[in-house]
């Protein structure tokens, strides 16, 4: 099939960007979306042009590197999959596909489709951990965690830190990302001692980074490749209020 791509090109943080149009011929439906971009890049290099920069690594939906707005949707059409898992069979011959980087003040563009998500790392540094030093911890089975609790914590912990929730949100809020971490530890016995400070500090850092507020739009859950539930946002709100009040 043939596809028309409109891709955001921007040399670096300082320069302005614009859309460029590229025609892709004979795209196989079994190809992944990123493999199609690989082919585009080979063509561009052959013509002596600068290939399109995009972040990617594992190409199996787990590292969280990839991520682009495809026809206005974070990670493209379909649910519960990252950009690298998207196959061209989701598109049709003659489609015009617009590809943009995540758009959020807290994620400045580095080049083309590559953005700087280090704000997420800084939020994690603000208490997104259990203070367990190496050594001197009890036996794994000394801490009992019933399966339903472990499962729910695992649901939250499966966040890949891709930033799609932010990109999908009209307010560029990072609530789902923060909630996933706070919720994982709030559920587990290991997370209890630092429960309050964690919620307070992570939210504070989130605000400092320039992410917006949550207005219960739920676009985040809809576009999250790991289907992280907005239930965790409700838990984060409770955690935060409890921490503030008590």
């Amino acid at each position: 099939m043939n596809i028309t791509l409109k891709i955001w090109r921007q040399r670096n943080r300082e320069t302005e960007g614009r859309f460029e149009t590229y025609e892709m011929k004979d795209v196989s439906p079994d190809m992944s979306f990123l493999e199609m971009l690989d082919v585009l890049n080979i063509n561009l290099i052959k013509k002596g042009q600068d290939p399109v920069a995009f972040d990617h690594d594992c190409r199996e939906g787990i590292c969280g590197s990839c991520g682009m707005m495809i026809n206005g949707r974070a990670h493209g059409p379909g649910r519960g999959a990252a950009t690298c898992e998207l196959r061209m069979r989701k598109f049709q011959d003659g489609d015009v596909v617009t590809v943009e980087p995540w758009r959020a003040a807290a994620f400045p563009v580095i080049k083309d489709l590559v953005v700087d998500r280090s704000a997420f790392d800084r939020i994690m540094q603000a208490g997104g951990y259990v203070s367990a030093k190496t050594g001197g911890v009890p036996d794994g089975n000394a801490i009992l965690i019933p399966k339903p609790i472990a499962d729910e914590a695992m649901d939250a912990a499966s966040c890949i830190g891709c930033g799609a929730c932010v990109a999908a949100c009209p307010n560029s809020s990072a609530m789902l990302f923060v909630a996933a971490k706070v919720s994982q530890f709030a559920l587990l016995p290991q997370g209890q001692p630092e429960r309050k400070t964690r919620a307070l500090r992570m939210v504070e850092q989130m605000d400092k980074e320039g992410f917006g507020n949550c207005s219960n739009n739920y676009a985040c859950e809809a576009e999250c490749p790991k289907k992280i539930s907005v239930m965790h946002i409700a838990r984060l709100n409770r955690e935060f209020i409890k921490a503030k009040v008590f």
Binding site: Y129, V130, A132, T134, G135, V137, P138, D139, G140, I143, I145, A150, A153, M154, A157, Q184, F185, L188, Q190, G191
Partner: peptide, 10 residues
């Protein structure tokens, strides 16, 4: 043991 203490949801 270390990973459990860190909150790894095994």
């Amino acid at each position: 043991d270390q990973c459990v203490a860190q909150g790894v949801p095994f």
